[in-house]
Structure formats: C-alpha cells, structure tokens
Design a binder for these strands. Structure first.
Length: 463
RNA sequence: UCCUCGAUAGCUCAAUCGGUAGAGCAACCGGCUGUUAACCGGUAGGUUGUAGGUUCGAGUCCUACUCGGGGAGCCA
C-alpha cells in the first residue's frame, strides 16, 4: 500500500474515511495508558498532526508505548471519525512498524522552548510547530513572488553571486579568493597581486543584483531577480543577516509612481496568497507568536499604503510633539525611531517615503528637478521597519556621469553600466525587497534569524 | 562596532544579608480504559559560561574574555 499524505486526509476526508490506509511520519508525542494509547503523528505534509489510536492488540504494543518523541514510524489502519473534540478524524492502528527509533536524549520536548535555544539546534527546529509554520510560509511566499512576476510577464534573471565589481555601493563585501593565505603574492608595490587569483582580479560575493538587472531590463522591459545576497557588515540586530535573499524587480518606461504601485501590488498579492494557502500556519502563529498577525494581514488587502515625501515626513515629525533622541532636520537621514513613529503611530500601516535628499542616497538614483532630492522611495512597515528600498534610476548619461564625478566614483569600473545609457537607455525604476524582512512581517517573528533556515550572522556560521 | 541586560540539571526557571544546589518538564521505572502541553507515584541527573581575584567561606562581590537578548549605527 502506498502511504497517504496527512495533507490529503484533510483536503479530501470523504475519500479516506472508513478505509484502510497507511501513513508514514514522525512521532510528536505518545500518550500511553495500560491497554491503549495515542500518538501524535506528523508526516511533514501538513501543519497539523494526525492522532493515531492504538491498543494492546498490537504485537509490539510495549515497544510502541515506549516510543520516544522524534521516532519515525509507519502506521496502517482505518481512518475513523474521532470522538475527541480537537480533531475531526483519527487513525485506528492495525499495525505500527518502527522505521527508526529516536535516541532518548532528543532535545525537543512537548513544551515551549525559547527561540534562542532552538537556534542552537537549527537542524532540529523545523520539527517544532512554530518553525514548521515559518518555513512552510517561507516556501509559499517564494512561490507567490515568482507567480506574481511571471503572471505579469516579468523575466526572471539570475544575476551573478560572484562579482568583480568592488563598488556596488551597498555595503561591505565578502572576498572570494583561492589565494594561499600563507603565501600571498605581492606586486612591486607590495600590494596583493590579484592577477594571480582565480579570476585574475579582485572578486567578492554580490551585495545586490540591481546593476546587472538594469541591463536585462533594457532588453526584456520587465525583469526581476530573486537570489542570495551577502553583506559583511558587522551588524548585530534582529533585522540583519550576513546572507539573505533579495527580490529586485526592474521596469522600463516607468517612473517612481509605477515602481511604488508595483511594490504595493506585489505585497498584497503575496499576502493574499499566504492567507489562502497557509491558513493553518497563520492561525497557529496568530495564537502563539503575534496576536495581531491575522488582523494585520487581512486588513492590508483592502487598505491603500500611505504616501509622503521625505520633506513632508520631516514636517510630520517636527509637528508630532514627540521628543526624539536624534534630531529631525531636513538633510539628515531618518532614524529608526522616526521611521517607527511614521509607520506605527502616525499611519498605522505601510507607508512609502519618497524624494529623499540626494546626499543621503546612492549615485544611480534619478535627480529630481529641484536639484536637491532624488526619485527614491522606501517602504516602512510597522514592526519591521524598512522592508523595501527603491528608486527611479538616472537614465540621462550626462547627469549620471556628473553625479559619479561628484562622488569620486571610477567611471571605468562602471563602463558597462554607463553603456546602457548610451545605447537606447530608457526611463526605468526598480526596488529591492528583503525576503526575510517580508517573512518577519508575514509571520510575526521578531528576529530575522528565525525566518532563515541556517542563519549567518557575525560570529555565527556553525551549521 | 557602541550602550545595556543576562548565562544555574537535557529544557524552562528558583536559590533571602556572601553560609555550601531546588522545582516543573524531558529521560528512566511503575500505575491508569478516550487522551490531546494527558494525569498520578518513584529513580537518576550539577566543576553554577570560561579564566583569574576578594573572603574563613562565592551561584551570589570584583576584573577580563566568550556567547546570547534588547537598543543604536550600517542597511534589505
């Protein structure tokens, strides 16, 4: 007999009820009595477990009653309606074969563990309710993002992980090398001779696929990337990881307004997909992790995101009457406390902030007509902070070159990026979405380390 | 990297003024005829994060380090 999936038992119960079936899975808990007992069985296909009822007619009744949580078993029996109130049906076992016993020092218990402890057993934590919910949602959200872009004609571009550009400008980079650290080759000036390294030049892990994505945007009109990104910043916060996944769409013949509309549509689409396809998981997270989660996600579909300019944000903060630790002054970047006030107190929903002063933003952002702000946007979200950063890109070659000169950037390093402006460059815009930050918003988890399977943070790459 | 708080049994925590280590859960043994964080009884389980120091005596006070939480910076 082929094994049935617990997911299907829930989806098409009538097809299985009162029939002989087999289910393979892992024991979550056993509750034995003298002549019978219950097993919570989880097969990984569905959030909820299946209750198995067994009794002393099993030849291996004693062995089954002593099963340690975590053991892998195969159960054959009849699916029947359950007299208990916590589950609609249960499996009346006719035989239980032990696939593999679990050692008694199994670290997971039937009670609550702290997330901090579970991080030390990252290889086992997906077996807990919370993490199985988080990682199933992660999978569904990734699919929902591809679905959203593919259905709108976006081309998925795989931009390189290893990059030769040392000036992508988004942060500290991890170096990629095969040089022997005990015998580093040096040139006449005693500098490291990267011409003898694997790629014949200095290389690093990417901090963004945006510049490469822009080039494909000028071919396919609408493109997106979805891949790993690496930042060697010594950031020790619940919102930063050294390795994370980023989604970066880029659209041609479009400006900042279209860019923001795209971001809003995408977020709403992903949220609606998750509400529909991960309902069990969201219900669980709503009761045990964040009591406001479902309400927040359900409300977002019907509400429009806020829109303010940076200048308006400064005015709102100044007029708020709030005492902030950091000063609010036009030209200074918004601090975390300011962003929180805007998203959580003033708007109470996601809000786009646009048109930042040029001096606090990247060189490639399009200069506005006022000459002192750029067409940039950030999406602030309650509880997480900045989840998206984007801009209309500077498509005018002379403006871009002038800006690079002002900032002292080496134009030769960017020759191919500048070429795009020479050869039929068009207006275009895009943004970067931190996938883990989106997941924090979707799950209510408050630490980025708990929404990525094996998190890499400063001093932590043990798995 | 800075500020701040913390580290005690496998896990979650307690230990009064500095006086010599305690509970629940897990494990193990036994009981229980519908449980669902099952329940009841028992057994075992400790170099109190590491290294120093003060003291007759340190889980408790001091110093350094390691790791972790929260806040900040950098950013997504």
């Amino acid at each position: 007999m082929t094994a049935s999936l617990i997911k299907d038992l829930h989806a098409r119960t009538e097809d299985f009820l009162n029939k002989e079936i087999q289910v393979n899975g892992w024991v979550r808990t056993v509750r034995p009595s003298r002549t019978f007992g219950f097993i919570e069985l989880n097969d990984g296909t569905f959030f909820s477990s299946l209750q198995v009822v067994y009794d002393e007619n099993l030849p291996n009744f004693q062995e089954v009653s002593r099963l340690v949580s975590g053991s892998a078993i195969r159960v054959a029996g009849v699916l029947v309606e359950s007299p208990g109130t916590k589950q609609p049906f249960e499996l009346k076992a006719e035989s239980i074969a032990v696939e593999e016993h679990c050692e008694p020092d199994y670290p997971l218990q039937k009670k609550r563990h702290t997330f901090e402890y579970l991080r030390t057993i990252a290889h086992l934590r997906p077996r807990t309710n919370t993490f199985s919910a988080v990682f199933r949602i992660r999978s569904a959200a990734a699919y929902a993002i591809h679905k959203f872009f593919q259905e709108r004609g976006f081309v998925h571009v795989h931009t390189p992980i290893v990059t030769g550009s040392d000036a992508e400008g988004a942060g500290q980079m991890f170096r990629v090398t095969t040089l022997d650290f005990d015998k580093i080759p040096r040139d006449e000036a005693k500098l490291v001779d990267f011409s003898r390294d694997f790629f014949g030049r200095e290389t690093s892990l990417t901090v963004s696929g945006q510049l490469e994505a822009e080039t494909y945007c000028m071919t396919f009109n609408k493109v997106y990337t979805f891949g790993p990104t690496f930042r060697a910043e010594n950031s020790n916060t619940p919102r930063h990881a050294a390795e994370f996944w980023m989604i970066e769409p880029e659209i041609a013949f479009a400006g900042l307004a279209e860019d923001m509309a795209l971001a809003e549509d995408m977020l709403k689409s992903v949220i609606n997909y998750i509400l529909k396809h991960a309902a069990e998981e969201l219900r669980f997270l709503n009761s045990f992790v964040d009591k406001t989660l479902l309400e927040r996600l359900e409300n977002i579909g019907g509400s429009d995101f806020g829109h303010i300019t940076y200048s308006e944000a400064v005015d709102i903060l100044k007029d708020s009457g709030r005492k902030f630790e950091y000063p609010v002054e036009w030209g200074l970047d918004l601090q975390a406390e300011h962003e929180r006030y805007l998203a959580e107190n003033h708007f109470g929903r996601p809000v786009f902030v646009t048109d930042y002063p040029k001096d606090i933003k990247a060189f490639y952002m399009r200069m506005n007509n006022d000459g002192r702000t750029v067409a940039a946007m950030g999406l602030l979200v309650p509880g997480v902070g900045e989840i998206i950063g984007g801009s209309q890109r500077e498509e005018r070659l002379d403006c871009l070159e002038k800006r690079m000169d002002q900032l002292g950037l080496n134009k030769e390093e960017y020759w191919w990026y500048l070429d795009i402006r020479k050869y039929g460059g068009a207006r275009h815009a895009g943004f970067g979405l931190g996938f883990e930050r989106l997941l924090m918003y979707l799950t209510g988890m408050s630490n980025i380390r708990d929404v990525i399977s094996f998190p890499r943070t400063p001093k932590n790459a043990g798995f």
